[in-house]
Design a protein around this nucleic acid. Structure first.
Lengths: 190, 190, 190, 190
DNA sequence: CATGAATGAGCATTCATTCAT
DNA sequence: AATGAATGAATGCTCATTCAT
């Protein structure tokens, strides 16, 4: 809800920039505003106008993901089967982290770059907190790990997936997630 | 075992460079050969002669760590209590990953930068394989996760620790490691 | 006397632009048409329409000053006391130069940017010439310095005032002007 | 007296840079380090190494001039004929200001950019103070204008010379200086 | 072998000006 | 006539790497 709805051409440029940036980020490149401009076939100045810093662009990229995830967790909180909801969420979150560097960066760290991002993240964390609370109270989840912990652990797993020695094995993510869920030990350690 | 044992001054330089680099890496900086040279009070060219690329320097930094770890795992393989040996190893490995960016980078990824590093890593992985095999056969460890997997998962946990929202809590590492060991679910998931 | 008298809103814009520009110049900033537009709360294009170049804007700013000064000199030419008139003029001119960068720029240099400015300047110089002529003929002024010379010398004194090592001393302008009037030597040099 | 005497090639580069910069400044351009590098046929980095900022380069340019001037004033202080010494100094100083923008900038303003420049300027001002003191005590100079005043006034005259409406008249400088020395009025004003 | 000056590609950023809306 | 988004040339600066000394 921008104060002034973007002019048509401005909107097209913005879209193009975001699209290009998304592609670059997904390709693993670090965002260089100049490069984005070149790829997006847009003047440098235009990129700078829309996104004064690389961070702002990254943040914009992350927003959609945040919104989708929030919607999903919201559904999960009230779903009949918490365990299933939790699974689905963890699964999707892991995928998001693995696929989307921009989102992972923004969802972590004490420095959400944008006011908007910060709000979104807080909202997401809040929702997850509720989901976890329910899961714990229903005996599905061990206590001791809170929402921020879980997010960052998931991020860690994503990191592992991305650096896995079996990069072409499609089951890696599932396997690693399962390790986190069930643990690697056969019986509990102190 | 270099063909020609280093001249005394050359050796001193090498040592100085490594020391400085270690300090810089530990301080979280990305290694800039120029900066290392300045700090180490040595000409840029000297650094380049000893370590043609930043990676080579990083690799050299990682070697000690590899050697220490190999020694430890070797002891663990034949220790009476596998579970304890496994714990100690995981604990130390996590610490190593958290503390030593250089080592983590080298222990991972399909591209050990040095012949020497590659050998060391292979040796380490071999030893861990043995340790894990024993642990699985004694029912301590769930099957399904092999040595490379475990290493990368640990790396993921280290990543989580380093990005934890509770950066000043000294128990974070333990808590996260425990999550990996025991899992986060109360009862096994499919 | 524009061919078509400005539309009411156009006039308001013009006024606003001039006002803003005046403030910025007085604040010592170099005129950036973009900045003027922003401050004046007007589109860039509007500024460009009214004043195609920074110089044109500066020139417009200078015009008022020219007019005031011309009026004053005109009075001085026929005043009973040439010496007093001359003093007043020099004093005011110095103040104008010191206070108004825009005016100083326009009053100098072989390139008055606007036809209008050029006319005004020529008119001013003409009047001053008359004043000086009278002053010389009445023995008030040494010969050898003509109107353009005097103007540029005054500008030099203004430059000195603006760069004075005693920037907070309100008497600096008077002191420096006096130096120009009476000279710094006790007795004439060759 | 640099700690380490410059290497031969470094010295050559430095000289080249200074030479080029001098030419550019004399041509009235504002110093752009990149441009200097191009003209001097030297890498940008080289220029930056020698002179981290445009100001540093300007300052270096100014130093020679300072030294020459200091030497001259020193001679003048003890010369038998103060009046003549004063004249010579004023004449040369005016020339320096007119010819050398870099020097003028550095000799003025509360911000001598280099420690070295600052020292030189202070030394110069000190010497001039002595010269003026002698001139006043011998009745050659009117009191009321001190050394910093005189310098800045001279700078003003230089400014006038440079902006003179008679740019090709070689006598302009003399005429304007004379105006400052003897004043423009025939008899003293209050 | 060591040195550190030189290099210049590379990236970031600004701002005067144009032109579609 | 007004707007302001778009443009991209211009400029500033850094830093990895080479190579003369």
């Amino acid at each position: 809800m921008p104060a002034t709805p973007l002019r048509k051409d401005a909107a097209r440029n913005r879209r193009q920039i975001l699209q290009t940036a998304r592609a670059m980020v997904d390709a693993g490149a670090t965002l260089q505003l100049n490069a984005v401009a070149r790829e997006a076939d847009v003047g440098v100045g235009t990129v700078y106008r829309h996104f004064p810093t690389p961070e702002a662009l990254l943040a914009a990229l992350a927003e959609e993901r945040f919104e989708a995830m929030i919607a999903e967790v919201r559904r999960g909180v009230t779903a009949p089967d918490v365990r299933a909801a939790l699974h689905t969420f963890l699964d999707h979150a892991l995928t998001a982290y693995v696929e989307d560097e921009a989102f992972a960066a923004e969802a972590l760290g004490p420095a959400p770059t944008t006011e908007r991002t910060r709000e979104l993240r807080d909202e997401l964390v809040g929702m997850i907190r509720d989901l976890l609370a329910r899961a714990v109270s229903e005996g599905v989840l061990r206590p001791g790990i809170d929402a921020p912990d879980l997010l960052v652990l998931l991020c860690g797993v994503a990191y592992a997936v991305k650096n896995s020695p079996y990069p072409d094995d499609p089951a890696v993510a599932t396997r690693y997630l399962k390790a986190l869920l069930n643990g690697v030990l056969a019986t509990d350690a102190a």
